[in-house]
Write a protein that binds this DNA or RNA. Sequence first.
DNA 1: ATAGGGTTAG
Length: 669
Amino acid sequence: MNSLRLCMNGNNGGFKALWKFNAHLPSWTDSLKIPFYAKAPTSQNPFPATSKLVLNQANLSSLLSVCGRDRNLILGSSIHARIIKQPPFFHFDTYPRNALFVWNSLLSMYSRCGELQDAIKLFDHMPVKDTVSWNAIISGFFMNMDFDSGFRFFKRMSESRTVYCRFDKATLTTMLSACDGLEFSGVTKMIHALVFVGGFEREITVGNALITSYFKCGCFTHGRQVFYDMIERNVITWTALISGLAQNEFYEDSLRLFARMRGGSVSPNVLTYLSALMACSGLQALVEGRKIHGLLWKLGMQSDLCIESALMDLYSKCGSLEAAWQIFESAEELDEVSLTVILVAFAQNGLEEEAIEIFTRMVKLGIEVDPDMVSAILGVFGVETSLALGKQIHSLIIKKNFSQNPFVSNGLINMYSKCGDLYDSLQVFYQMTQKNSVSWNSVIAAYARHGDGFKALQFYEEMRMEGVAPTDITFLSLLHACSHAGLVEKGMEFLESMARDHGLSPLSEHYACVVDMLGRAGFLKEAKDFIEGLPENPGVPVWQALLGACGIHGDSEMGKYAADILFLAAPDSPAPYVLMANIYSSEGKWKERASAIKRMKEMGVAKVVGISWIEIEKKVNSFVVGDKMHPQADIIFWLLSGLLKHLKDEGYVPDKRCILYYLDQDKRD
DNA sequence: ATAGGGTTAG
């Protein structure tokens, strides 16, 4: 056999894999060593029993299905050889029905083992085919990500007029599962139509596949409708919708449905609980999440590895690193996912350095890291982190051969640009063979971050030329770039184009960017009008942007207007107090400034201190305002005052309008 | 036919 030889000589395991397989061979496969025995068949008894074991079509097909499941091509193709050598029981010209049954099993075995060339050969040689044959080969293509061939064969199947080759519910679910990889909904809708044509609308598996497929391609309303129209639902139906909703950020809906399910007759399974936990993470719903945690204890599912990861993620997203750590410590087993969760838990809770420290130690200990873990750790860079360390991780990526993973490459682009190395950031970008929207967004953001707004816009043009569809984040970066480059008109154009040309509805973050842009450029009145002209209540970030702009331009009247709205909308936020204090001090209104600070203290709101840092010889040195903690503080301040003198000699006038509020009045000059 | 972690803006 061709494929057998290929497998033995190939570099994918070779004899080692064969040995490993033999060690795990179930004992009943010893029967293969017994040659086929059979008395001459009669029409009443085509497979007469003998004293020796006979492999009939049922034995063979279950054997072959095991080979397919375990991707055991060696055993599978040896069975194929025996089938060929044993005429006439499985030959089409003598026993066509038996032959079809067994050949379909063979076809499925080759498909599952990924040997599509052999499967096609077999398929073309079959004088008779039925629905099962077509299903086997089509699903083989999809399992091997060859979508083109899969669809081509489906088309061929539909065109064949044979009654035995009509599609069935398995064909449709196979086709639907292939849609998971597609971003457009056309195929799903077409298959949905075929469901009615074939009369499969009451089939529970078909309904389940439709829900999943619609959610994967973004047709959420259709997916929900299928669920509601279904007459009968099982755990999978419920879980498909609950997880689909959670994965697409419809967290509340997901939890509502979960509650409804618990009130009904179908019990959730582990996957349902996982999806519900995911929804809780998304909402940072600690109370609801704890309830599910308790429930899982009662059911004895709390030590499932996946459940543990989901719970750790939940607690971490809710700000409780301790709770996440507790689960991590008591876990009997760890894997790449749970390790990633705990790394991200540190990073998300302000312990970026510790996250990197743990990662470094893991690598030193020889723990296997995977691309997902690496991209997670790259996301940590940018806050008080070292470019030298980032480069070490880059070399690890090259060593591990993860460079082709888009998440990893995109992570690298961002790591370099956030650490100030725009050149290497671009190097990574240009070396990527498959750039996706995130890659382009990252480069646009990189230029915006480095203050080159024009270059950012230029990359957007290139992105369009390459036919990559922009996302809402593309527009956030663009608006940002416009804001910093003072390109107000261009920015307003982008805001319009977003909805008009790309069907993206602006979020409150986009409006905040626009307000920031208008405000920075001095169009405070326009910014306020813009906010008030918005269809919905714009939310906290928008007003914060206006207030920030008022700070820049020293407009206390409008600033107060914005701050009053913010005091109500976000009483915990220190921003409006600090910004108002700054505005007052720029106008010399010391009393008002003092009362703003007093109010902030009364409300128990604390300002987060800004940090500056610089990397010198692989060591990151960080500073806060007035910081004298550094061992070389004396020299640093001496140098600073010298620099300031130079600046003043060159004609530099410090901007005292926004001088920080904690300074005493006499120090302001 | 259903499942846990990862990259982009501030």
